[in-house]
Amino acid sequence: MLDFLASSSFFAIALTLLIWRLANVLQKKTGSMLLHPILVSVAAIILILLASGIPNSAYQQGMKPFSWLMTPATVCLAVPLYEQIRVLKKNLPAILTGVLCGTLASLFCVGGLCLLFGLDRTLSVSLLPKSVTTAIGAPVSEALGGLGAVTVTAIIATGILGNMFCQAACRLFRIHDPIAQGTAIGTSSHVIGTTKANELGAVQGAVSSLSLVIAGVLTAFLMPLMATLF
């Protein structure tokens, strides 16, 4: 039975989508921001794999056709960008400067704290690209000797933090302008934060998508330089 589940072509995807559905229902029922569907799903799947003895490698093999969608899904972020092109064009200098400052702040803050806490090079390099989307962060981290899964986890944690608290943080830091809000959310918490930005408004969502792309590209270029610090 377990052998069949481990080698099944559809078990992993069916399990993931079922758990995803339950996690979404759970969040809606409880209204708790802490029970983010990604967190709950990951915890539940790890527990199921550990309890059943199905190896993670078999689960990942089963998820491959699904994970394959990550690249085209990221490509499709071009559509919301294009639909808000007029807002973007008019405010491009402010958005670009904001994203550049934010990306530098992120890299130097993470790098500085890693040195301060005395983390080793592998862990530091894994944490550096934590504010950009997985499609960029994970390959860049691995190319420089980081651990892919640690990077992905840091990226997810960052995204969920942004998703949960960006509205409160914008209020706290008095960021009222929808364009500034979108820039801040996209630069600090990539795609997962952008989901929230889309709920705040179409302008916030589009600017957030644009910002996460620029922040990702900047980070990809700056990472090799930052990694020499360790």
Binding site: A12, T16, L17, W20, P37, I38, S41, V42, I45, I46, L49, L50, N56, Y59, Q60, M63, F66, S67, L69, M70, P72, A73, T74, C76, L77, V79, P80, T122, L123, S126, T134, A138, L147, G148, A149, V150, V152, T153, I156, G159, V191, I192, T195
Partner: peptide
């Protein structure tokens, strides 16, 4: 596709069970 981005993050994060000791 863009609406389903969040669920695509689940499987890569499950990999953490193998790299948890580094963290």
């Amino acid at each position: 596709l863009t609406a389903m981005l969040p669920v695509l993050f689940v499987a890569p994060t499950v990999n953490l069970m193998e790299q948890a000791q580094a963290l």
